[in-house]
Structures are given as C-alpha cells and as structure tokens.
Design a protein around this nucleic acid. Sequence first.
RNA 1: GCGCCGGUGGCGGAAUUGGCAGACGCGCAGGGUUUAGGUCCCUGUGUCCAUUAGGAUGUGUGGGUUCAAGUCCCACCCGGCGCACCA
Length: 930
Amino acid sequence: MATGTSSPEYRYDAQLANTIELKWQSRWEQEGTYFAPNPSGSLADDSTRINFPKLFIMDMFPYPSGSGLHVGHPLGFIGTDVYARYKRMTGFNVLHTMGYDAFGLPAEEHARQTGQHPRENTSTNISNMRAQLRRLGLGHDQRRSVSTTDLDFYKWTQWIFLQLFNSWYDYEEDRARPIEELENRLANGEIETGYGTPWDSLDTSRRKELINSFRLAYLDEAPVNWCPGLGTVLANEEVTAEGRSERGNHPVYRRPLKQWMMRITSYSDRLLEDLEILDWSDAIKTMQRNWIGRSEGAEIHFEISASLIDVFTTRPDTLFGATYMVLAPEHPLLDEIVPDSWPEGTPSIWTNGFDSPRLALTAYQESAAQKSDLDRQEYREKSGVFVGTYATVPVNEKQIPVFVSDYVLMGYGTGAIMAVPGQDERDWEFAEVFDLEIIRTVQPPASWNGNAFTGDGPAINSEFLDGLLVDDAKTKMIEWLEQTNNGVKKTTYKLRDWLFSRQRYWGEPFPIVYDEDQLPIAVPEELLPVALPELMDWAPRTLDENSEPEPPLGRADEWVTVEMDLGDGPKLYRRELNTMPQWAGSCWYYLRYLDPNNDKEFVSKEIENYWMSGDTGGVDLYVGGVEHAVLHLLYSRFWHKVLYDLGHVSTKEPFHRLFNQGYIQAAAYQDARGIYVESAEVKEENGNFTFHGKPVTRHFGKMGKSLKNSVTPDEMYEQFGADTLRLYEMFMGPLDQDRPWETQSVVGSQRLLQRVWRNLINEETGNLEISENSPPLSLRRILHQTVNSVRDDMENLRFNTAIARITELNNELTKLNDPTPREIAEVLVLLLSPLVPHVAEELWEKLGNNSSIVYASFPEADPDLLIDELIEIPIQINGKLKSKITVPSDCSSSDLRNAALADEKISSIVSDKKIKKEIIVEGKLVNFVI
RNA sequence: GCGCCGGUGGCGGAAUUGGCAGACGCGCAGGGUUUAGGUCCCUGUGUCCAUUAGGAUGUGUGGGUUCAAGUCCCACCCGGCGCACCA
C-alpha cells in the first residue's frame, strides 16, 4: 500500500466512503429511486406512494454560476434533503427537485468576461452544477429539473405574461379578471371611459389605448431607474439606498422612459393581509410589510392662491396645529404658485438671501437636484426656502406660509405636507431653523420635556376635537373633511408598480409586437414561444448618463420584424425589443416542477391541486436565503395571486412555510497592507495568525474568491467523503443560523461514521459482525429514547441535536465491548439514513436487506421504554444543589421526601435545623428551605 | 433614529411548562496500543480556592419576581440584519 496506511482494509475512510457513495449514486439513478409519482400525466406510475399524503419541499433554485460551488452553497440543499428523506420514511409522497435560474444579468456578465455565448456558457454551468450536486447524494427527482432558459419553460413564462397583459383589476370584486370583460363593460357603459365620451364614439386606436391603460402588464412613460453602467433600467427593488445598482454597484439615474410595468400595487392589500396565513418568520413578514408600506390617513385639500394642493397625512387630527406647508422641490405646482416678489414683511431667514421667490426657488431646486440620495442621508440639517405665498388651512382659514424643502419627497404621498411641528419631530426641527410657529394639538404627559410629542393623548387647541384621544380625533376630523369636501380618507403605499423590462439580451423576449399605431399587441398563444434569436453581438454597451438604453435585440435584424396574420391578413409587425427581468422565471418555477413535460398547459389542474393543496395551501416547505425577502418572494406571491384570480391555480399563496437558512462564514485573513491571503496557508499559534511567517489579522465573512477563503465540496470528498460533509454541515448548528466553517472540525463527523461502521462491520474483513441476541433492557431504553428525540428533532429541522442523540447511542455501543445486537444496529442505521444516505444504504444492504433504505419505515419509539426504572433526583437546600438520590421513576412525593431526608449529606445539613418549606416535584427535584 | 434577531467554556453549540447549566462535537491535557509519528481506544477538561474530602462562583451589565431564573419582568450595554426625513 502506498502511504503508510497500516489501517485496516475496510476502515471507513475517505476512499471507502467514495466507493460506497459512487455505487449508490448510480444505483439510485438507475432505479429512479427519487421519482415522485404524479396523480396523472407522464409522471404517473403504478407506485402505491401516490396514496400517501403528499409533501412538496423546495429550495430556492440557484443561479448556475461558472465558478462552481463552495461548501457554503449546499447547506440549505442538504437540509431539505435530510428532511425530505425523513418524510419519505414516515409515509409521505415527497416531491423534491432542483432547477436552475439561468437567465439574467449575472449569466450575461459572465459570458461577457469569457467571450462565450450565454447559451453555451449557461448549459456548461448547469451540467457542472448538476454533477456537483449529484455527488452530494441529494435525492432529487431529476425528471422534474427545469431551467428558466429552456425553450419549453420560457414558453410558459411568456404565457403567464400574456395572462397579465390580458387582465385588468376589478376593484369592486377585488380580483383580476379577463380583459374582454372590461371591454364589454366599457361598451355597455357600466364603466366610464374617462374621456368624457362614450365607448361608441371612440375610434379603434383610442379604444385600444384605453384598454391598455387597465392591463396588469402595461406600458408606461414614467421616471425609472436608468443604470448606464449595466446598460439597462432596473426595478426599485434592485436599487440600493445609496442610489446604486444592487448588482455591480453602478450609479443609477432617475429618468422618464417608456417601459413595461406590472400592476403589483393593485395587490398591495392582499399581499399584506395574506402574510397572516403564512408560516414565515416575523423578520421576513416585517420586511415585506415595510416594503409595501401601507399607511392610513387623509388627503386634505389646501387652497393656495387660485390652486388646490393635496396633502397626505396620517395625522388628520393635528390639522389645527398645521403652521406651515412644505412641497417637494420637484413638485409640479411650484411654478404656478410662486409670485414675482416677496410679500410684505417676509423674514430675511426665509429668503436665503434672494431678491425674488422665483430666484430663490430655482436656486434651491438646483441644489436639491445635485444632492445624491447619499448626501441627503448625511446632511440631515433641515434646509429649504419660502415660496413667497400662503396656503389656507381648511378647518380655521388660517394663512400658513408655503416652503419648499428636500425633506419632503416627491415619490411618497402627494409630494406635499402640512407641517405640524408640535407632533412631528422633522417639522419641529424645520420650524426651529426658520423660526416658525409651533402649536401643540395633543396634550403631552406632565413629565414630558421633549420637543415634538408623537404619542397618544387628549387633543388641545383643536376646537371640536378637544379632549378626544388620537384615534377618535382622526375619525372625527376625517368625517368633517369629507362632509365639507375639504378632504377624503386615504391610504397610501410605498410599493410602486414593478418595472418589468430590461435592455438585455439574456432574458425572455416579450410575446408582444407593435402595429402601425405603435400599440402593443399580444402574440397569440399558439405562436408561443417567441424564441430568443441567436445573436453574436449580444454584449450590452456601457453607456453614459445621458444616453438612451439600447436593447441588444435591436441588433437582431432578421428578428426585429415579423409577418403574422392576426386577423387582418398577413402583415408586418415590429417586435418588442426588451427582455424580461431575471425574476420572471423564478416567479413561477415551482409550478413547472409539478408537471414539467406538459405541452398543453403550464401545469395540469389535477396535478397542481394534488401538490399545492394543504392547510393554507402552497409549497409545504421552502428553504432559502433571507436576501430574497422582498424581491423574489414578493413578485412570486403577486404572480401567484394573479394566476389564482384567473383560476389557473388553486391556492392564494405559493409558499406556505418559509425557512431561511443561515450562511456559512469562513475566517479570512489580511496582511499588513490589508490584502487578503490564502486562508488555507495561514497558521495559528496561541491565538496569533501568521501567513508565511508574517502576522495577519482575522475576521469572518462570506466564503468566496475575493476573501480567498473558499473550501470546495470536492476537497471535502477527497478528505472525508460526501456523507461526512453532509453530516458536518448539519451538525454545525441550527439550520437558520450563520456559522463559521472549520475544516479541522470535520473530522469529528467522520469519526462518528467510522465508529458506527466499526460497531457493525469487521474492519479487517468488511463483513457484518453483529449479535443476534436481544440487547439488555437498559440499552433498549436508550435506543427508544434516542428514536423519540431524533423523530422530534427531524420534524423540527433540528438536525444538530438529532446527530448529538445518535452519537450518544453509538457511544453506548462502543462501550459495550460486545458485538452490537441486530435490533440496535438496524435502528441506528435507519436513524442515520436521512443524514448520510450512502453509508446507510451500504450498511442496510450488509444487514441483509435487498431493497433501498430510502423507503424503509423510520423507527418508532415504544412509549413503555421511554421511562427509566430508576431516576436521579437532585436535592437542593435553599435552592442550591447539595446531593442527588436515585429512586424508582414512579416514586411518590412522600417517598421522595423521606428518601431525600435519609440521604447522608442532607441529613447532616438539616439535622439540627428547622425546615421552613419543602418543595417536592415528583420526578424532578426536592428543595428544602431552612 | 425606528424595527427585528441575538449575546452561554479556548471554539461550534445543548438545555419542554422556570426545576441538576455546559448535552454532542472540535481543541487541549494525561494514559493505553504502536519501533516511532499518525490512526484507534480510555480518562479528564467553565472559572477560582483546596493535597484530598470538599467549597465558592458562574449564562452581556444592573435591579426585580420566585423555594428555584440562561429561561419571566424592568432598565441598560454590545453585536448582526432590515428600514431610514414615508408625512
């Protein structure tokens, strides 16, 4: 033998593990072990599993990166695999597979760097990733694996787009409905055209425009996030608070462009309300709530000279305390209301030193426009300028000065506020800078010594509201506003419609063409898919701020125009050149897993019903990173609800239970210059770290190339095997927690498997070596207690503690010094099998079973064996542990008391003292207070 | 600033309803096996005092409730994440 291996030939080491793993991986593949039967269609079979309760388990599907996996990537995949395997063994028909989110910016960026066509590059990456995941032994139904870039996948992405395009939102029924119904209702006058003229008198083009303005997918000219660095526009969700692109960190500019939008705002309330029925973490729910940003209040009309300006407020009850008004610098009415000169007696601090309001306003608008969002964050001091005119407070005819300031944002509410410094901290600050009047309209508590008071209290200085608490005062004020036509009750949202087009090549083309009116027309369903044309010159050009986006598809000369017969005979149409954003495919991929080969429907109704049904419906368990809290999870919920409204799916929500796995972090080391050095070569001595003899500093971060701290699964297979890697990742800590990777600790997990192996197998011969005798009762008790805990842990995704219990059981076997009794061996292997399926299959086979352990029954605990005959009871004096006694587990409290008093240590302490109080908890403890 | 999550040995982490803090693993120390190293096996390992027996102390800090607090309550400190002038 090569390298000094005096170790036995059949020791469970990396080499043996690899042999076992490869053997079972090909066996599973040959036998289609993980195929989950459908109730009908091409994936139906005669297996009896279709009669079991179903369970649909999913991972957030990955983007197939070219740089390969590191050990952090598969953490969640292993978690779902273990759970899926456990559930299979407890009688469920489990659907678990894995697809690839292969369209989008990163695929193209990578392709740009390598000069390879995205299509080739993507398919290479997918097959590499499949191979890497296969090597982990994940029990996926490979027949259901899809990629968003497959033609017969994105055909249906386009089909769903058409569903949105061909729908409108009926607010009366609070659901989406087919656009034809809208047309009928416009035609018969049930819905007004909004042009002041009836439907009949509109020409065809006008009618089309009108209909278009109702669609859930619509074209709109609106300020959008233009990112020249990426050559595309981006959704709000893809832009950081610093005003840069989330991907690539390029600057983003707001500018008006005609783009496709998705009417997600119609679903704001339902997206908010239905969070209640979901089994998701509060953190994610809160993030979605914040993003939707619903606030209730009133819109109040203020008169300024001849114009009316609407103001949104959540505190209509404070109207009597409004002492000035503020408009956003971008407010469109500013031009109309600004007078030529300052009114008599304008304080000089209000003018910023300008001779006329118009000059002051222009100067302020320019300086505000130059401030980036980042500056606005750092520069918190209030700035602004008087506009030179006054507004009238509707409730008391008071004249209040109108200011412009950048602390009011055009993008929220109406871009105008009534300022109530008494009850708003920001307004208070501004009022102090410009020396403005402050009127409290809520009585703060006597102890209050702060500025603006935002809490609850009785109204003051507010005439008919005086004495009312905030909620009642709001209601009463809204009543007054509505009765007097001075305002209306109103709810606003932070959520904006979803910008859906991108100027990229590597995405789904829109199934849209334009006719000579330049109005969008749906490509008929039977002509789908609209295939992405082959294009060599696909790279987007990097552009400057003032350029126009140019969709790369515009360069596909042959493809840009198409002859079709859409009812008026064959005609030439111009194609939509934008592509869909990456989120499109991930919005619905879970549905395609269910029925991947269906070429008639995106998913069959019967099959969808089978897999998506459940208490509140949807995927039973969805595991993924927290970074998709608002983007993917919000978009996906939106599409699902549209499909639900149109009758294509049976549940309100796509994902019933969401679980966010933590991240694996790794130590990264920097030298004196701050440059990262290869973590693998850093040495530790007494808490000091050195790299090639020079000191380096350590911190923890995400694994990756940039921190030079990646550890790959392949290295782990070579050193330990896939089962050890799986076991270690599950043992490191709770699945939802971040944890640091430590290669040196992996050996602990290998030792467990080695000891298990040795407890069942003769290391010299490789033969099974167990006893056919019954185990002693004490060991059977431990066995059943272990089974009980492991089941509980598996149900709750607590794999780390499940492994700890199994380890304890195995340690008992090691101590036996006798061959392991078969009764124990079989259960041990079954308990381990979800975690380490390969070695479990091997041992299961050696135990004489000829069918796969995958569908064996998970052990059940005998309740009689869960209770020990004797238990140890702690005895405390004054709450401090002094002694322990061993008593029968059914010991009564009086026996327990006597036994405790009979204990030597206790009697010596208690003897001459009076016991003031006795606390005796049967089966738990005894405490004497003296 | 607001919201959410968290803080337990040298390290990762365990601890149903308040009921023996530190399960399990890594590391470390000692011993056995071995020509040796490694592997493997056994023992020990929160901190402090004590030769031992044993004692004291201990879950971010300070207070409280309780026979009993990692767990419940109040105030605060630190770390991570999210939102951030949202009217």
